[in-house]
Design a protein around this nucleic acid. Structure first.
Lengths: 326, 326
DNA sequence: CAACTTTCTGTAATCGCTTACAAAAGCTGG
DNA sequence: CCAGCTTTTGTAAGCGATTACAGAAAGTTG
């Protein structure tokens, strides 16, 4: 009767010669199943390629539905968020959580309550944090928010590593293209940049800090204008790959070769953005998995805490040793 | 017993004094329900803010799962696709279709088969079309593909309207910033531009066609370089809002005011991109709904056909009458 | 080996919704 | 007023999982 269909728990039970209850217990790693039985069931599961149907388990009240809340004003086109979103939906599913569309009111609060939330791009004094905390709704923030559950990449560390890389290549005039100061990530990366300079006893020169906004176009204009205005540097650390792409074009247009004349480091390592860039890789998949894990903890009522996800410098073709003059 | 819980179909039935079957029929717009009863049920649904639980309806076998396939090489960060994606997931849900994550192999073919597919950004001779047609898998394409189910905005008409708008404002030197020629949309918009010029008997000047690639940065560079190279025009029609944003910045940087010196028209009318732009609005929600509808037809085995979704010129602040010289 | 425990497994109710089928109600004309 | 329709509504059986609860099997003990 069950020809060609995707297998159900019934099929597994039948083939393994046990009841559906037992299969379910095996699948959910519940105790009280004989090891041999367990093995047999798992073997059949494997063979059939059986995957429990999410809808059904949700019906039993198992599958908690969660929502993702993007801060109002945050442009959801930003590659980083698009990717994070994708990985989150994958990670949540893996964790047995179901991601739901969450329409929000103008204040950014969800109209349809879910069991828990993930907040992206929250500002430090986001009123929604207050509201969620008041309502004791489990939530996890991506970013640093002491007192709540949070997950954040080690932005300062990444920026430090990027800058140090340039320093070790012999560069001393290192410019930094920032993100908006209202974004935590932008601030932290600036901090990492300064800390690295300090560690190498290179004086901090404010004029080398160029104000960007994470957009490619602005990066281009700022860098070009600065260079045409006479600012010189042998290396540039951009706070995002997108900005690095803009900077790269600008440098090219003012006649500088990368990396021979100016070394360039980006940040994020987004696929399809600046393929050959030396950059700092954020493991977005890892951030997503960690977020999902914390959300489960939050749903289980654990005490809030935060986790830093490490980042890694990836050296590619846009940086090189500073050429010693003459 | 059902205190504080999200309401179920049972609650609705009880309060409306009917059976769950009837409520279900109302909700699914099935015939054979007395108008009065229908109204009463809807009233209760409204009052309770009842929303059917997707998991449950999926369990009944209702929810055909469908997948969205993005052509390989298409950058999914593109605002247009992000938006289309969102609207599609909404529209599919409304149509009772369940959108599934569809991991694909390197060739862009789905690994986990769904009942039907929506293809975005397909090229004209995409091998996947062949494969899907062979396998008789129902699918709908966004774009024009005679012989298959397709939905496409009226790009040529939109471009025509945009260009005509500029012509009627008295402009005669109208430049056009194109998308890549391998994109249907880019080609069609160029065609609309040419057709409008023809209709107004303005000679077509190839040098006024600037090669863009739908990106903001390239738009900026191309426009700036062209202007600095001596090219002059009193109006510019960009084939996307993102390119218009780049063009706007470029014009500003070469000392031209918009719209006093140069009128500018974009395309797409994406929220959060170039708010004040005169542009051509694509009704993405409508495209999504139409796509969902066609997919249902395809699933039902209907004969393939295509639908054009109309677009609309939205006049805002970046266009004005051409000033007649002193 | 009887009498208990303890471990393991099966049974069946349940979640919220859809839908085939049956039943009831509303018409119609003679 | 009733047979014979048609329209409207209710009933109940699933869909695929989970999980109390009960029952069977295996292990312990005196």
């Amino acid at each position: 009767m069950n020809n060609q269909q995707t297998p159900t728990i019934q099929d597994v039970a039948r083939l393994a010669g046990v009841s559906t209850g037992t299969v379910s217990r095996v699948l959910n790693q519940r105790p009280g199943v004989h090891p041999e039985t367990r093995a047999r069931v798992l073997e059949v599961v494997q063979r059939l390629g059986y995957v429990p149907m999410q809808a059904a388990r949700e019906l039993t009240g198992k599958g908690d539905t969660v929502g993702i809340l993007l801060a109002p004003g945050v442009r959801r086109y930003i590659p980083y968020f698009v990717l994070l979103f994708e990985h989150l939906s994958e990670a949540l599913w893996q964790a047995g959580l179901r991601l739901e569309e969450t329409p929000t009111d103008p204040a950014g609060l969800p109209l349809k309550p879910a069991k828990g939330y993930i907040l992206l791009g929250a500002h430090d004094h986001d009123p929604r944090l207050e509201a969620l905390a008041q309502a004791r709704t489990p939530h996890v923030l991506v970013g640093v928010y002491p007192g709540a559950f949070w997950v954040a990449p080690d932005d300062e560390g990444g920026a430090y590593a990027a800058t140090r890389h340039l320093l070790e290549l012999g560069h001393r005039e290192i410019a930094h293209l920032t993100g908006q100061p209202q974004h935590q990530a932008g601030r932290e990366r600036l901090r990492g940049y300064r800390r690295a300079l300090e560690a190498y006893q290179v004086p901090y020169r404010p004029e080398l800090v160029l104000d960007g906004d994470f957009s490619t176009l602005t990066a281009y204009r700022v860098v070009r204008k600065a260079w045409e205005g006479g600012l010189r540097f042998s290396a540039l650390f951009a706070a995002s790959d997108e900005m690095a792409v803009g900077a790269l074009a600008a440098l090219e247009d003012v006649g500088q070769r990368v990396p021979q004349d100016v070394s360039l480091v980006g940040y994020d390592d987004l696929p399809e953005v600046g393929e050959q860039l030396t950059t700092v890789r954020q493991d977005i998949a890892e951030i997503a998995r960690t977020t999902a894990r914390l959300l489960k903890e939050a749903l289980a009522g654990a005490a809030p805490h935060g986790i830093r996800v490490p980042v890694r410098l990836v050296v590619r073709g846009t940086t090189c040793l500073k050429e010693v003059e003459g």
